[in-house]
């Protein structure tokens, strides 16, 4: 327990003191939320009562993706290339507690991100209807899926490649993840492709559970569940602890 607590404290501190990481996890989601709510520069779904009802769940999706995937991939990739993971393996911390500490840190950072976005959202006229339980379940499933993708990258790629790949995926999913505009406004084939990725499923789930209400469509649940299982399994099968 003591090694886990020491590690979790460190992971959280590292996550909250890294400038580039904060830009991706908090800076960009906040800028997107405020900017697009005020300018309404991009199309909104016809079902949305206000811009914030769509953009708050959208930027929350972006925030979860940033922490689960981008930060986890980059931080863990650096740790791997510096031999940190290798060194920690021979301490009493051990690998299960290390993983648990990383999960703890991801959840703590996400709670901070979601609180910040919710407060700004309320100021921008966010009046969510929905279901808190579904909100939490979909956020947790998506976190598992994104963290699995992040750890897959961290465990198989060189750290320079990871930085490019993680930020690139973040940027692509920003546009085709139902985050800043509904995927229904994408061309047909791209929309169908977007539905296979975890970002669009999470934004859809959050749009219903913390936006306009109504039930989360089955495709979104299936998508989130499959990614939540497949990505961590892939990561654990391919992970190399040192390079």
């Amino acid at each position: 327990m003591k090694p886990y607590l020491a590690q979790a404290k460190t992971e959280i501190k590292l996550a909250l003191t890294q400038g580039e990481s904060l830009l991706v996890t908090i800076g960009i989601p906040v800028i997107v939320l405020i900017g697009l709510s005020l300018t309404k520069a991009l199309p909104l779904p016809s079902s949305a009562h206000s811009a914030a009802d769509f953009l708050v769940p959208g930027t929350m999706t972006l925030a979860i993706m940033a922490t689960g995937m981008v930060s986890t991939a980059i931080a863990t990739g650096v740790e791997r290339s510096y031999g940190v993971l290798k060194r920690l393996a021979t301490t009493p911390l051990g690998r299960p507690a290390l993983l648990l500490a990383k999960i703890t840190s991801i959840l703590v950072v996400e709670i901070i991100q979601l609180a910040v976005l919710a407060i700004i959202g309320i100021l921008l006229g966010w009046h969510p209807t929905g279901n808190v339980v579904f909100f939490v379940i979909s956020a947790v499933l998506a976190t598992a899926g994104f963290a699995g993708i992040g750890l897959f990258m961290a465990g198989t790629m060189k750290s320079e490649v990871i930085i490019g790949a993680a930020n690139g995926i973040y940027l692509i999913l920003l546009f085709i993840g139902g985050i800043i505009m509904p995927i229904s406004s994408l061309p047909g084939a791209l929309e169908a492709f977007a539905r296979l990725l975890p970002a669009a499923a999470l934004s859809e789930a959050l749009y219903h559970s913390a936006g306009i209400g109504g039930s989360v469509p089955l495709w979104a649940w299936l998508n989130l569940i499959i990614w939540a299982i497949a990505a961590p399994v892939l990561a654990s099968k391919t992970f190399k602890w040192d390079q």
Binding site: T10, L14, Q18, Y82, G83, V84, K86, R87, T90
Partner: peptide, 13 residues
């Protein structure tokens, strides 16, 4: 106790 040939510590720490 292990001292690796190089690395093993968080670069920002």
């Amino acid at each position: 106790g292990v001292m690796l040939q190089n690395g093993g510590i968080y670069p920002r720490m």
